[in-house]
């Protein structure tokens, strides 16, 4: 059996040809036009190229529509689900550890404790319930890890520059907070800087507090690894480049190494202040 994209495809069914182009693979190329004629898929070479053209155009436009339309939506849901799973798992874990403490002598604290309980063999009806409950919590933790792996795999193709700059999970969070990659690309970088700090921002706007220096981007080492006096500068520089990265990803989609190098330089300059001015 051949690996050709047209293997098993009805010549009159362009959709099947497109599927062949999208989903197939081969270890090595071959003289596909000749094979297509030989196998009776087409009458001659020029008909082959016509069919190939239909199939590749349909495959490419379908896949573009799917990947463009859906990737940021998928990331948004995935990152929210990951947070839900983590928050709920922690809640369950608290109950498990507390309950298990009344039944067993040696219960490790926190999430380790939950995994430990889930592995035990219950001997009484009460133990049965607490072990079963712990199993649910562990399943949720595993689900959280799977979701994180999914985000790490998807973010680089949905937003290559943003994912490279912020890391896949923070990239997904920014997209989720903005409400989509297109929205993130359109907001000013000052908004990107405080995404996730809405409470603090509104407190500031109603005159009750100073303006927040950073929102969710605080989780990045560029911000939290910079000394507090310079964090505002680092957050502003970082947000500026994130904004550019989101725009490149939304409007162009190609990977631009220059932007990343510029940011690295800028952060180094900001951090160098710590060594210069002060004793």
């Amino acid at each position: 059996m051949t690996d050709a994209w047209f293997a098993g495809v009805d010549p009159d069914d362009p959709a099947a040809g497109a599927t062949g182009v999208r989903e197939g693979s081969a270890d090595a190329p071959a003289d596909w036009p000749a094979e297509a004629v030989q196998s009776g898929f087409v009458a001659d070479e020029s008909e082959y190229y016509e069919r190939l053209r239909e199939a590749t155009i349909e495959a490419a436009s379908d896949e573009v529509a799917e990947r463009e339309g859906a990737d940021d939506v998928q990331l948004t849901h995935a990152v929210r689900a990951m947070d839900d799973a983590e928050r709920t798992a922690n809640e369950l874990a608290e109950r498990v550890v507390e309950w298990a403490g009344t039944l067993y002598e040696d219960v490790p604290r926190g999430l380790d404790g939950v995994r430990d309980i889930a592995d035990r063999d219950p001997t009484t009806p009460a133990e049965e319930r607490v072990v079963s409950y712990a199993t649910r919590a562990v399943d949720l933790l595993d689900e959280r890890d799977e979701l994180r792996a999914f985000i790490e795999e998807r973010a680089p193709s949905a937003a290559p520059n943003l994912a490279e700059m912020a890391g896949p999970v923070l990239a997904a969070r920014l997209i989720s907070l903005a409400g989509g990659l297109d929205k993130l690309a359109k907001v000013p970088s000052g908004t990107v800087q405080v995404l996730g700090a809405e409470d603090a921002l509104f407190a500031h706007l109603s005159g009750r507090a100073s303006s927040p220096k950073h929102g969710v981007i605080f989780t990045h080492e560029y911000v939290n690894g910079t000394r507090p006096e310079d964090r505002g500068s680092a957050a502003r520089a970082f947000a500026g480049k994130l904004s550019i990265a989101a725009r490149i990803d939304h409007y162009s989609g190609d990977y631009r190494p220059e932007v990343h190098a510029e940011l690295t330089d800028r952060i180094e300059t900001i951090r160098a202040r710590a060594e210069e001015g002060d004793e």
Binding site: V21, S25, D27, A28, A30, W32, T56
Partner: peptide
């Protein structure tokens, strides 16, 4: 991923 389409 495209050797089944691109000819030799």
């Amino acid at each position: 991923s495209y050797a089944h389409v691109v000819e030799a």
